[in-house]
Every structure is written in structure tokens, then in C-alpha cells.
Amino acid sequence: MAHNDRRVGDSIRVFCSHCEVNTAGRIEGILHDDETDDEGRPVLGILLQLVRCSHCQSGLLVQSWDHPDGWQDSNTLWPGPQSKLSPLVPHRLQLAHQEAELCFSAKAYMATVVMVRRTLEGVCADQGATAKVLMRALEELRDSGKIEGRLFDWAQDLRVLGNQGAHFSDAEVSREDAEDALALAEALLDYIYVLAVRYEEFSKRRQRTRTAEPPRLLDSLRGVTEDGQQQP
């Protein structure tokens, strides 16, 4: 397979996961890593590049694929996007959300919303929903009080957008829609696994505090009994 030459010192467009911008980067090193068939013949040209971001000067590992028109689809392999999710979010759901973030960083916006939809399915399963159809599972979470009005509307919108990405059609998913889908999914995860848990802990702590409060000082000095009668 003939390669379209790239050289150390060339500039390419990359997504920098350090400063989270699409920018130019300088190639500092190159390694060809072709995929081959069972007989060792190259079937896909893959180029790994060590790139320095021109914006923050950090290093990146970037992957590109050979194409008749030149190397295509520069995808940042390392470092991956930094997840903002709380460790309270279950690990499997964190992985699904991180994969959606990776899709977004690779400009695969349809794949991003499909992974967001998969994250929603994981939330429903983790929260005990039994319906197989995602729309019905979300309704179960709403009816059980685990998600409320606006969050339910958000989740349904994400489900519809994920369906759009999953089924072949002429409809496209914009960068803005994919970015919003990630943000809304993150808000949903935070609400269910962080805010709701913290509120429950806060409420229990306040209840314990009220139960353990000592008698009012003035009542103690006056010797007032529990039924409000003055002690002799």
C-alpha cells in the first residue's frame, strides 16, 4: 500500500485533549503501523504520530488512516478526554460516557449520541427499570421519582437524538447537538448519582441532629416536665 508522505516537522490539525481545542500541531515523530490480512498483506495504512500542540505545547499521540487523497481522520489517542464525572457514578456508566467523549473528540458526532443513548440504557438498568424499550424504562424512572419533569424531558430528547444516530438516514447530527447531548447526559448522571445521594445524606444528618438536640436551656432551668407542667 502506497503511503502519502508525512514528515517530522509537518503541521496537522488535531484535537488537543489538554487544552480542549481543535488546533494545529507539529509532528515530532512518526510510526507506520499497518493492519494486515492473514497472509501479511497490508489492508489498511495506519500512521501513529507524536504531535506537539501549538496552543499549549503539550504532547499528543495521534492516529491517521491512509486514503487515496492523503492521510485522513486524525484521531487523538492519548491523552483521552478528562472525565468530569464524580467517582460516585458507577464505573460501567463512566466508561460509556467516556467512550461518548472519545467519539466527540474524534468528530464522530453520530457515534457520540449513540453512546449517550447507551449510557441512558445503562442508567435505567442500574436503577432497576425492567422495561426493555428505553422510552418505557425512562417512564419507570419518572414514575418511581428517580428523575423529575425537566430531567425526564432531557432524557427523552437524548433518546430521540440517539435513535437518529443509530438508524441509517439522511439526517445528520451536528457538533452542537452532540456537545449538548454530552452535557445533558453528564447532568443526568450527576443528579441521580451525586445530588440525589448527597441530599439524602444531608436530610438524614439533619434528622439525626434534630433528634439529638438537648432540651432547651430555659426549660431545664425552670424544671419543665415533658407534658409542660412545672416541677415542684
Rank of each mutant, 00 (worst) to 15 (best):
H3W: 15
V8R: 03
S11D: 13
F15Q: 04
T23W: 03
R26W: 06
E28A: 07
L31M: 12
H32D: 11
T36G: 00
T36F: 11
D37W: 15
D37C: 05
G40N: 06
R41S: 05
P42M: 03
L48A: 12
R52Y: 01
V62A: 01
Q63P: 02
P68W: 00
G70K: 05
D73C: 12
N75F: 10
S83D: 05
K84D: 02
P87W: 00
L88K: 10
P90G: 07
H91A: 15
L95T: 10
H97N: 05
H97I: 02
Q98P: 00
F104P: 00
A106S: 09
A108L: 14
M110H: 14
T112H: 08
R117K: 08
L120K: 07
A125I: 09
D126Y: 05
Q127H: 05
Q127F: 11
G128H: 04
K132N: 07
V133H: 08
R136W: 10
L138P: 01
R142K: 15
G145S: 08
I147S: 02
R150L: 13
L151G: 06
D153L: 14
D153M: 10
A155P: 07
D157W: 01
L161G: 02
F168C: 03
F168V: 12
A171E: 11
D177H: 11
L182N: 02
L182K: 02
A185R: 06
E186P: 00
L189R: 01
D190A: 13
I192G: 11
Y193F: 14
A196I: 02
Y199E: 11
E201I: 11
S203F: 10
R210C: 04
P214L: 13
L217I: 14
S220D: 07
P232C: 07
